[in-house]
Design a binder for these strands. Structure first.
Length: 261
DNA sequence: AGGTATGTTAATTG
DNA sequence: GCAATTAACATACC
């Protein structure tokens, strides 16, 4: 799940539950997810501090610690957050922040492909990881600039975090479906109409998905996402959906609505 | 048992 | 040297 809309949904969840509470201690049963720090280092950085604000850039969630510094969370393919109040215990977390009010914030990444790090500044982290601009911050002009000098399949371009940050396999399929563009269409071959449709679809899809709390059951009727499985049909024309391999990942699309031109 | 899975990154190829 | 593609990573599920 964890693409831009999912991470934004967790950011809001964190805002609604875990702000302004003093950290008592941090447990990290699976230290493998830590990048550039240790369980002790993380504990030292967080103890006695409070999260006072959150940010998101692409698929990364930043929790600003009061006075200075940020906790950085990345969810990999399966990560999630869960806040529990005092008394509700929940022990199979990958990492867990215990607050002095007894509540806990669990970071659960069953496949341990996620990452937890510390960073002084959001911009510094983004620069160090060479992330492109957040997908939702891109206007039509910038979008057109990002195509310059690029080649290959449009789906891979959308998913390249160095070009723009936040779009993964599921939402790139959704954006291309709404724009009626085949996932293997060459990004160089996009004309100005195609570029405009793609940019509009990007914003519409990501904003609608956030509005739905990134829950497939709450997405608009017209979305491909809930039909994106074996035997699924196009919500627009009813054709059997098809798959193809693009950049090592499975792309779902409607062969009738998204012809390869 | 083998293939697939929403993530990134290092290695490889063009 | 750059950009694009592929393999590897850890674990769960069908």
């Amino acid at each position: 799940m964890p693409e831009l809309p999912d991470v934004e949904t967790w950011r809001r969840y964190l805002d609604a539950t875990a702000l302004h509470q003093e950290v008592d201690l941090v447990r990290v049963p699976a230290p493998k997810v830590l990048v550039g720090t240790t369980p002790q280092g993380l504990g030292h950085a967080l103890k006695g501090r409070r999260i006072d604000e959150t940010y998101r850039h692409g698929k990364y969630l930043f929790a600003r610690l009061d006075t200075d510094g940020h906790l950085v969370l990345h969810f990999g393919m399966t990560g999630q957050l869960r806040y529990s109040r005092a008394g509700e215990s929940d022990c199979d977390a990958t990492a867990c922040i215990h607050f002095s009010n007894g509540a806990q914030l669990h970071y659960i990444a069953p496949r341990k492909l996620g990452h937890i790090a510390l960073s002084g500044s959001v911009n510094g982290f983004v620069a160090a990881h060479q992330l492109g601009p957040d997908a939702l911050s891109i206007d039509a002009e910038r979008f057109a600039e990002l195509v310059q000098g690029r080649h290959g399949a449009v789906k891979s371009w959308l998913m390249n975090q160095h070009i723009m940050a936040g779009i993964g396999n599921v939402y790139s399929d959704e954006i291309l479906f709404q724009a009626r563009i085949h996932p293997r269409h060459q990004v160089k071959a996009l004309d100005s109409d195609g570029l405009r449709d793609l940019h509009e679809a990007l914003h519409e899809v990501l904003e609608a998905a956030i509005e739905a709390g990134a829950d497939p059951d709450r997405m608009p009727e017209s979305f491909l996402l809930p039909h994106r499985r074996e035997g699924g049909h196009c919500p627009c024309c009813g054709a059997d959906l098809d798959t193809t391999r693009v950049g090592g990942r499975t792309a779902w699309f409607c062969p009738r609505c998204q012809p390869l031109s």
